[in-house]
Design a protein around this nucleic acid. Structure first.
Length: 221
DNA sequence: ATCCAGGCGCAAG
DNA sequence: CTTGCGCATGGA
């Protein structure tokens, strides 16, 4: 598949997504029920185990970034960031797994979030040929086991959210506007503004969402 | 051995 | 409404 001004590395490794491993040139990605391989060679994307359409959706390739980049380039202060993150896309992920990953992100760091997600998949998911699927809503239902996944004080958030959501819950959210969806998400335990915005932006297609974490705050300051 | 980390919930002013 | 504190755990 042909891609333009896209960087697989800068997209997958930007902290939007946490279940991947890199072997030589290939990335092995796991998201929800699926596990697939992707690699980039200049403007060409090679992939196995996923359809063209689903991959494009997942990696956020359907959005036209040229216009956005051009506009942002008018602010010279943003140039170093645009350079450093060239080719980064906003991904469109599976909402439940996205929610759990950002509940795990509270007072944590990327490396540990990746560990949490790996352990949760191994504990509650199904084994497939290469690794583990991520459990569906309702399937992360054992607090002790959640704690075993190094989730600490976040375990109860995940455990309770697991009882409150379903596939249908997220389908409804996708149809709501940004502010309604965010308000709804924030009713869940362990979901404040930041986590809600991450779920809105990275899995519900709400492009207005602007998650503000400590790093963004520091930059703004 | 310390110390810190991509917020949240909750109690208090 | 705003502020400040405690928080489980792995990694630096």
């Amino acid at each position: 598949m042909q891609v333009n001004d896209f960087s697989l590395k800068n997209t997958l490794e930007s902290g939007q997504f946490f279940r991947y491993s890199k072997t030589e040139n290939w990335y092995q990605c796991s998201e929800g029920e699926n596990t697939f391989l992707v690699k980039q060679d200049n403007n060409n994307l090679e992939f196995k185990g996923i359809s063209n359409k689903k991959l494009a959706q997942f990696l956020g390739l359907n959005c036209n970034y040229a216009k956005i980049i051009k506009e942002l380039s008018n602010d010279y202060k943003l140039l170093p960031a645009l350079e450093k993150c060239h080719g980064l896309r906003i991904m469109q992920r599976e909402p439940w797994e996205t929610l759990v990953s950002f509940q795990c992100s509270i007072f944590s760091n990327v490396k540990k979030i990746m560990l949490n997600m790996k352990l949760l998949a191994e504990e509650f998911g199904r084994k497939n040929k290469r690794t583990y699927t991520f459990p569906k809503p309702g399937e992360i239902n054992d607090l002790k086991k959640i704690k075993k996944c190094a989730t600490g004080f976040r375990a109860k958030y995940i455990h309770n959210a697991n009882k409150l959501v379903s596939k249908e819950y997220f389908e409804k959210l996708k149809k709501k506007n940004y502010s309604e969806a965010k308000t709804e998400l924030m009713k869940l335990p362990g979901v404040g503004e930041k986590v809600a915005d991450c779920v809105c932006l990275f899995s519900l297609g709400k492009m207005e969402a602007f998650p503000v974490d400590v790093w963004i705050k520091r930059m703004i300051e």
